[in-house]
Amino acid sequence: MNGQGLIKGLSVTIKHFFSPKITELYPEVKPKLPESVKADFDLDREKCIACGICANACPNKVITIETEKDENNKRRLKRYEMNMQYCLFCGLCAESCPTKAIITKQNFELAAYSRENTKRLLYQADKAPASETEPGAKE
């Protein structure tokens, strides 16, 4: 006591003054996230059997799924949309998928300029594939 604590504190801070800095220069240097990170989702259309379990597993009704019957009277995916503004990123959809058709991705830059762009169309029967409609890209 009697000022020793103050001096000790000063010595610690000056030690850290010369220690290497930890700042990440974000936009230039992008962080490499581990594979388990579930920041963005994609759909493997080959694997998807349009069962709708993911839509039911979602706590927040993020996933909209539309199906149609094909010529063999088999269910087929027509439209698959994720409304990312309600997403909790819990990963329950990917976990519940029986065929592991939902892929988690590490792209975390999901910010978009308008509310419309937060919707992610992962599949539509007669439209361009999903990954080309990245959110925010349109604006």
């Binding site: 594979e35 388990s36 990170v37 909790l88």
Partner: peptide
């Protein structure tokens, strides 16, 4: 946490009956 749970803050790591991911 990011490595094991896939999230940093809102981890949602436990499931009824265990944990979803093994130690990576």
């Amino acid at each position: 946490f990011e490595m094991i749970c896939g999230s940093r803050l809102t981890t949602s790591f436990m499931r009824v009956g265990g944990v979803p991911n093994d130690i990576p």
